[in-house]
Each structure stands twice: as C-alpha cells, then as structure tokens.
Design a protein around this nucleic acid. Structure first.
Length: 300
DNA sequence: AGTACCACCTGACGGC
DNA sequence: TGCCGTCAGGTGGTAC
C-alpha cells in the first residue's frame, strides 16, 4: 500500500511537471513533426495541439476562413463555418480525448479532430501555404492558423456546447481525468480483449493503437488478455497515466520517448528493450499490434 | 456484447 | 524505372 501510494505520487509529480490544465505560453511555433506529418493523433498529440492553439491563436479576431476541402467539414458548410467564426475570437483551447476545441468568446466552440494525419500550422498569412493545408483561419493581425491533413480523415465543425457534442459522439471520460475506481469498473465490465477496451472511445477517450500498445507494454500485460486481477488493473491504470503524461512532457515526439518504450520499436523482429527478445506483430481488433510475447503475459 | 470487415483518403515502401 | 500489393497511428457503419 505504501509503495502504491508512492507510485501514485510520482504520477502526480509528472502531472504537475507537464502542466496539465495550465496554459502553455512558450511552445515553439514551428513544429517539425507537424510539418513532416509525423504526429499520431491520440491524446498526447491532441494535447500538444491544444497548447499550440493556446500559445498562438487566442484572443485574435478571426477575419476569414478558407476551406479547400469541404469533406473535412462535419454537418456544416464552408459558408456556415465562416459566418460562425468571422468577427469572433478564441478565448481558450480545450481538449477531450482526441478532440480539440477552440472556445469562442461569447459562446460556441470550434471543434477539431485530426484523423490519422492531421496537424496545425501557425504562421504569417503570406507564408508559403502548407503542403496539406486544408482549412485556414485568418486573423486580423496578419497571421493564420492552418489545419493540415494529408489523408483527409479528420473533422472540423462548430458546436454550441462542448458537453453535448461529446455526448453526441458517445465519448467516455478523458483518459487523464479518469479516477482509478471508474477505470476498474470499465476494465471489469466486459470480457473483450483488454486492448480493445483501452481503445474504445466510448469507454475511455484518448487512447489509440500506438499508445494502447505502449501502455500494455509498460504494464507487462498481453494485448489479448481478457480479465485482469486487481493488482494488474492498478498496474495498467498507472501505466496509462504515466505513458500519456510522459508523452505530453516530450511533446508527443516519439524520438524523445524513453529508451524503454516499445513505440520506437514498432517493427516485427526488433529487440524488446527489456529482454532483448523479438517484438511480435499481430492484428488485434483489426489493428497492427506490437508487443513482446515474453514480457507480456495473458494470464494473471 | 464483442468481433471482423469495409469505407473513407493519400502516400510510402518493398518485391519483382 | 515502373507497376502492384500492402500498410499506415483516425472514426463509423454493417453483419454475424
């Protein structure tokens, strides 16, 4: 119990260090990963995008919105998006799971979802247009925020109320807001594979394919495990918080992740950072999963 | 309820 | 060099 509390405290320390819930004012404006399209838009990336908006685009009068790809708009026309934003400004950036919101002064919010290849790029209006720039939000100060997306799988829209938007989407609680008691209930409720449960946005919002693999790897739990004991559930819970917070602290840049992370070894046959056995790839829930069969056991 | 597939898109990569 | 199959981290729908 003592040891357990110590671990939870270290998660709290990490939470403070990553400044969760506070504003990030000094985020580098030119984000290499965004430009290279190497982000993986799960919770940590969404949090980086939230901070990016927060550090670049708050309190600026929006003068124009240019939509190059209407298919990215969800239940709204290009004209509707523009008229809903023109003359307004973003007063705060928020996030739930993989969704990022620009809360508008005077009510309503801009909703951004990044699909698999989405990003943001802030710059001068006359800077070169980003290669996959799809929607530009132009501000009165001569700058613009561009929503980029190579594969066009994201979503952009407006909503009157973030809470009801989240409800309509059927999203569960955000992974970083989830207390252990609720996590345990979620993990115990069905008998599906543990990886599917972690990735199910209706149960927990924010975890996708890559981070579910990392969370399970750090907890030494097999992705196909179905039932967890209490100790394992706690281990998984701590791993979830720690992996997500660590990723945010490293700006969701995998090349900055600890050496002990499997994320940098997402290739069949690579060495497991712990036991040097071979990393295995297997389709689970329709996605490529990478894990170490020696370190990660199904039973518990 | 859980799972398996398909679709939506564009691009990278390896084999021949 | 070019062609072709496979794969890619997102969600959402259908069918069993």
């Amino acid at each position: 119990m003592k040891k357990q509390r110590g671990r939870l405290e270290s998660i709290e320390a990490l939470r403070r260090k990553t400044r969760i819930g506070r504003e990030e004012r000094y985020l580098k404006v030119n984000d290499e990963l965004v430009r290279k399209g190497q982000r993986m838009p799960e919770l940590p990336d969404a949090e980086v995008f939230r901070r990016y908006i927060s550090s670049t685009s708050l309190h600026q009068n929006i003068v124009d919105v240019r939509v190059n790809k209407e298919r990215l708009l969800e239940n709204i026309s290009a004209r509707g998006l523009k008229s809903g934003l023109a003359g307004r400004s973003i007063r705060e950036a928020a996030r739930h799971g993989k969704y990022v919101f620009g809360i508008l002064k005077g009510g309503g919010s801009l909703v951004l979802h990044f699909g698999m290849t989405g990003g943001l790029e802030y710059g001068m209006d006359h800077d070169p247009h980003p290669e996959y720039g799809r929607i530009s939000f132009r501000f009165s100060n001569g700058y613009r925020l561009v929503y980029t997306s190579m594969r066009l799988l994201g979503k952009v829209t407006l909503t009157d109320d973030i809470k009801s938007y989240i409800e309509r989407k059927g999203l569960g609680p955000d992974a970083l807001d989830l207390p252990f008691g609720n996590f345990r209930k979620i993990m115990n409720r069905g008998r599906g594979r543990i990886k599917s449960t972690l990735m199910n946005q209706a149960l927990i919002a924010g975890i996708g394919n890559v981070y579910s693999d990392e969370i399970l790897y750090q907890a030494r739990i097999h992705p196909e495990a179905r039932e967890l004991g209490k100790d394992e559930t706690l281990k998984l819970f701590r791993s979830m918080k720690k992996v997500l917070l660590t990723a945010i602290e490293r700006r969701a840049d995998p090349s900055e992740f600890p050496r002990s992370y499997i994320t940098q070894h997402r290739r069949e046959g690579e060495k497991c950072p712990y036991c040097s056995d071979r990393v295995k790839r297997k389709k689970i829930s329709g996605r490529s999963s990478y894990f170490c069969p020696k370190c990660q056991k199904k039973g518990g």
